[in-house]
Amino acid sequence: MAFKLASSPHLNTSAQTKSVMLKVMLCAVPGVLAQCYFFGWGAIIQLMLAIAVAMAAEAAVLTSRKRQVWPTLSDNSAALTGLLIGVAVPALAPWWITTIGAIFAIVVVKHLYGGLGNNIFNPAMSAYVMLLISFPLQMTTWVAPTGAALNDVSLLSSLQIIFQGASSQEILAYRAGFDGVSMATPLDAIKTSLSTGLTIDEALTLPSFSDGFGVGWAWINVAYLLGGLMMLKLKVIRWHISIGILGSLFVCAGVGYLLSPDTHTGPLLHLFSGATMLAAFFIATDPVTAATSPRGRLIFGALIGVLVYVIRSFGGYPDAFAFAVLLANLCAPFIDYYVKPRAYGHRSSH
């Protein structure tokens, strides 16, 4: 009898880490497509670049750590990290921005902490924050989110801009919208407007908000929401973190808007601008760095929502998901420690 004795259970779901990661990436497709539509070829180039660099970095680190490369690489976690970095950087940012971000995420944030499952911080968001602080100019220059941009900037010129750099005039040209006005992200625009004494209503008349929500960004958020709902349906993620984020952000924004409609953005604008849906469904739900119990995840999500609102409204950055997620990552072990479900047959959890 030479067969190997396995321990029970002898059944397993088909769900595996690689399939989970793959599903997440597939669910991100609508959002990625929307980004491509509004920001042109640059978005997909950044995505590909980030994924490639992330996987290469993963392979390199695994090799240097004397681990089996393929089994780990095939779990798709590095690819997902690359994807998230790719969608987070501006579409026409220089190639080295993405490369530095992807390498930092994989090598420093993930593998220096022990690899998959052991990292404390969300790799993609850590990289994003690092880039945002180190290269603020490159990280905040977004092309005008318009479908026309797809036509304006050809694939070739996008590649040229990203990899060879472009003259400031060219960049300026690409960053300009139809009317030649430089386009900031809607949240950026609101923040700038508010700082120049405009009210929200006045700010919303800016060209960035020509469709009432901020050109393109609302659609991108809707696309990510769609992807998120698909993930929920596929049970790739649980609802707790996402609902926690969206719920608390909605409540905070609603309260702020009711108290001071002139200086506070409305809840819907909060939900459908910036990285809200992307973060709520694809970034904060990274299980490795989140709280683990359902209740803990709800708290974790709510914490992110509150932090996002606070930083967006009162902080120095127009969007705040990266910071909020990292801060919540810090709290996750704490939340896990104090939020334990009551086990069967026990009266209370403590």
Binding site: A6, H10, G117, N118, P287, P341
Partner: peptide, 25 residues
Amino acid sequence: IAPERKEQPCIRCGECAVACPAQLL
């Protein structure tokens, strides 16, 4: 029956906690 698979690192997905009938972690 489940094929013999190599143990991979836990990604803390929490599915086990959801599935646990004793509500353990």
